Amino acid sequence: MSDATAPDLFSELDRLQRHMSSLFGGFPTSLRSTRVGTFPQINVGSTEDSVEIVAFAPGLDTNKLDVSVDKGLLTIAGERATGYEPPQEGARQYAQERFSGTFRRVIELPQQADPDKVQAKYVDGCLLISVEKRETSKPRSVTVQ
């Protein structure tokens, strides 16, 4: 395949993916294919010892935030207030990009994650979640006899 046709192929695949997504209501099939505007946006990564999740969620009241793990699924749920005064009576709103209301994100954890060892903290508008890996899944050295 020549270099000249590669961009056209990728743009055609992107168009096809958007079309298929619209046909099925835009429901995501994985973290990589979430709908536009999904809240909170997240990053998921791992170290040798843990699975690290960062949910970008400014303006949350931690008393209205729930993080739970059940059957290998990590759920982040809560509510986000508008955080501003409503427009004056008779004013028209042309666009609203800031999400407010209830939300729920579900993340499938890898099998090596230990659901009994989860820590979560909220710092500077980010929910930081760390799930330790099971001891049996961590790399270890084997002595050759």
Rank of each mutant, 00 (worst) to 15 (best):
K64L: 13
G83D: 07
D49H: 14
Q111L: 15
A57M: 03
E89L: 06
A91K: 09
G59C: 02
V54W: 07
D114H: 02
P110F: 07
T62E: 15
Q119R: 15
V106P: 04
Q93M: 12
G72F: 02
Y84D: 10
P110I: 05
A77G: 08
T75W: 08
V69R: 00
Y84F: 14
T34C: 11
N63L: 13
R104E: 15
D70Q: 08
N63Q: 14
Q112F: 04
R35G: 10
I76A: 01
D114V: 01
G45Y: 04
E85H: 10
S50C: 06
G59A: 05
G59H: 03
Q93P: 00
P86L: 08
Q112V: 13
V118C: 10
G83S: 08
Y84E: 14
T102H: 12
A81F: 04
G72Y: 00
L74E: 01
T82M: 15
K71Q: 10
V36L: 12
A57P: 04
L65A: 04
E48N: 09
T82F: 13
V118H: 04
Q93E: 14
L73T: 14
S50G: 04
Y94H: 03
D66Y: 12
F39P: 03
L73M: 10
D49W: 03
G101N: 10
I42G: 06
G83V: 04
Q88A: 14
S68E: 09
D70W: 00
A95V: 05
K117H: 11
F56L: 14
G90L: 00
A95P: 02
V69Y: 00
A55L: 09
E89M: 09
G90Y: 07
D116Q: 09
P110Q: 03
E79L: 12
N43C: 06
Q96P: 06
I53G: 01
S68M: 01
G37L: 07
Q119V: 09
F39C: 04
T82W: 14
G78Y: 08
G90H: 10
A95L: 05
G78A: 02
E89A: 13
E85L: 10
A77V: 08
K117V: 03
P115E: 05
R104Y: 08
L109F: 11
